[in-house]
Design a protein around this nucleic acid. Structure first.
Lengths: 133, 133
DNA sequence: GTGAATGCAAACGTTTTGCACAGAA
DNA sequence: TTCTGTGCAAAACGTTTGCATTCAC
């Protein structure tokens, strides 16, 4: 349930549409720069600052997930309906989505046990995939 | 079991000792800037770059945990011996260590199921603690 | 004495912001 | 016509790096 409370008008522009489309076409986490590059390649002129502003807007409205990689770059991905995690190859970057109620339950239980509310979590699994071994 | 393999000599300097001490006195995640400020306050002159270099060194030797906050700043904290995860308050940053074999088993199982090897994982739980609510 | 470690400042890459202009509504 | 959204370039931010100097060994 995205917030969509139009305290401000929220205009539909070509650029916002383009960023949303780019995210729709992709189920990997992408950096702002990658998204910007893809749009330019498609001939869709857009400023990097606008990409950032749009991504932040989408994040505020819970329409994209944001992840922070170890090097400090932020990755953005459209929210899928089901919550899941990523199994990433350390060598080639190949990503598999995994999900399971076990972790979800465990994290929530841990949080409640310590009196924490409004719980969310991030979990990434790293390894070396079969092909890279 | 820190690596301590002295391919390079690894010298004990006043500055490295100071950073290690600062981490020892604290069981919260602290940014490099915070650590730098604390040391200066104590009259322990040290350059910010040295703080960064030392923290990176400690991280390489698995002597500190590194966490990435949403705003891109890195947090450092001394490692405890057992593998565990963190329950962090989104508002005040209060951190609780949690551990449990359930997640460990689950991540390993998921990785193996997809043919991944040399598995590691990162898991952070975020919420709002009782005091901040 | 030798080479690793430091400090400083400059460089770096990512993200944010100020401002004049463009374009949805 | 209005006022949000955009582009650009500059600034800000955390972090890294080059280099002359210092200091642990």
């Amino acid at each position: 349930m995205p917030d969509h409370s139009p305290g401000q008008p929220l205009r539909l522009t070509r650029q916002r549409q383009a960023v949303a489309d780019a995210l729709e076409d992709d189920d990997q986490f992408r950096s702002a720069r990658e998204i910007h590059a893809v749009l330019r390649e498609r001939g869709n002129a857009i400023g990097l600052a606008t990409v950032y502003r749009t991504l932040q807007l989408l994040a505020d409205h819970d329409e994209v997930d944001v992840i922070r990689s170890a090097d400090g770059e932020a990755g953005y991905r459209r929210c899928s309906d089901t919550h899941h995690h990523h199994l990433v190859c350390r060598t080639c970057g190949a990503t598999v989505e995994v999900e399971g109620p076990a972790v979800e339950r465990w994290t929530r239980a841990m949080a409640e046990e310590h009196g924490y509310d409004e719980v969310s979590h991030t979990l990434e699994i790293f390894g070396v995939c079969a092909r890279c071994r």
